[in-house]
Computed example of a mutant assay.
Amino acid sequence: MMGEADIDSVVRHLYVHVPFCPSICPYCDFHVLTRRAGLVEAYLHRLEQEAAWLSGTYALDLDTVYVGGGTPSFLRDEEIRALATTVRRHLGWGKLENTLEINPGTVSPGRAAHWRDLGFDRASVGVQSLHDPTLRFLGRQHDAAQAREAVTTLVGSGFRVSGDLITAVPGQPLDSDIRGLVDLGVGHVSAYTLTIEPGTEFARRGVNVTEDDERLGFERTEQLLTALGFGRYEVSNYARPGQESRHNQAYWHGRTYLGLGPGAAGHYPAVGKGGLPLPVPGSAVSSPVLTTRRTNPHLHEWLQDAGGEVQPIDATEYVTDALFMGLRLREGVNLTDLSRRAGMDVAQEYAAVIRRQVSRGLLVRDGALLRATPQGWWVLNQVVSEFLNA
């Protein structure tokens, strides 16, 4: 065992959830809904109340802001301005990076300039494919021409642009999707395997993704993007040098961040302003609480100020969470740094698990660094489950 945990009490990252979409994609299981009269106005009013509460509770010095959804760019110009104004007034603005998730069908040169004027400098664009039959299968409302025009407009407007792709879609020309997206000038690609989640339209239709197709997409994406000058710095994320997502790296490195909006999740320090411990409602944890995870309720309950889920995180859970997220990174987890933050000797506590996973070729130990191998990435849930059950 080591001494006390060393968790930064100042929160440097903010996620804002915008739940509104023009339509619901058949694969989507996020908290999203179509807009109706009065809902956006009520959302913006409640957002300001929650932002004020967060500001009064936690010590803040934001490096990154990420506005996701849903479809944040579906908000009208005056609505996205109101959202940005609320964030700035109560919480500040990211010094390093400010990302807006964007649907290709919502982009015009004037709107891109408006978003830049509001302070957004990074755009995460839901391209998903540049093949019209694939887009129709995925239920997307834009076509390939709109996606190309949107990315070109955003790059030309000075955004650092990340393009999302979905892989393992039946009939998808993956190579041309990847090459086409890179040719548009993006500096970052997020490539996610099509996953059929319970309760989605695809699940009701009986859509299936085979393991062979999943693995082919997983491996071919890395082969091609690497050849095109992109480094795979996380399981699903690739970037040109210097184009990595600073905000998402906060998640993968186990840092604290605020969650603002309905359905938003946050990872919070256990202490608030002035370093005073914060109460954890209903907590029965006997060991010291290092951080808390809070998940807001969905829109209608959130509008009524209903309490969300609060989960106290002790040292053991903090470590296993950090391993689950950190082993997604190519650089892996720095066990010395994690031990300092958790207040326990991680390498000693999990020595048997680490030796076993290294012998199986799923992990590599290089001094203080613990990394997953390509095979370990493929079965990462299995790898982490052994730490959970240790």
Rank of each mutant, 00 (worst) to 15 (best):
G275D: 14
V353T: 14
Y268D: 10
G343M: 05
P374I: 08
M344W: 02
D345Y: 06
I313S: 01
T316V: 13
R355T: 14
D314K: 06
S359G: 11
G361E: 08
E309R: 10
A368I: 06
S286P: 03
H300I: 10
R355N: 14
L370F: 11
K273N: 05
F324M: 15
L362R: 04
R341Y: 09
S286A: 15
A351S: 14
A306V: 09
V285Y: 01
G326S: 11
R355W: 06
S283T: 12
R293I: 10
T336L: 15
V285S: 13
T295N: 01
A264S: 10
S359D: 09
G343D: 06
L290E: 02
P277V: 07
P279N: 11
L362K: 01
A306Y: 12
S286D: 15
Q357F: 01
V346G: 05
S287K: 07
V333N: 03
N334G: 13
A351Q: 14
A368Y: 08
T295M: 06
Q357H: 10
D366G: 07
G367C: 14
R340I: 09
V280S: 03
N296I: 00
L299F: 11
T316G: 03
G361T: 02
F324Q: 12
H267S: 12
R355M: 11
W302Q: 02
A347V: 06
D345G: 10
A342W: 02
V280H: 07
V285R: 12
S359W: 00
R293S: 05
L303N: 06
R341P: 04
L327M: 09
V280C: 09
V346T: 07
A351V: 11
L290R: 01
T292G: 04
T320D: 04
P312V: 10
D305P: 01
L327W: 03
P277R: 06
H267I: 03
T320R: 13
F324T: 08
R355F: 09
R356H: 12
Q348P: 00
L335M: 13
V289N: 00
S287C: 04
G274V: 11
L363V: 12
A351C: 10
R293L: 08
R341C: 07
D345K: 04
F324R: 13
D314N: 15
Q357T: 00
A315I: 03
A368K: 06
V346A: 12
G332M: 08
G263N: 01
V358P: 01
V319H: 01
P281Y: 11
P281F: 11
L303E: 09
H298Y: 02
L338Q: 04
E349F: 12
G308F: 02
H300P: 02
L303K: 06
P269R: 00
Y318G: 11
G326F: 05
H300K: 06
S283E: 04
I313Q: 01
A352N: 08
D321G: 10
T336K: 13
R294P: 00
P281K: 12
H300A: 13
Q348M: 13
D337T: 15
S283F: 03
E301R: 09
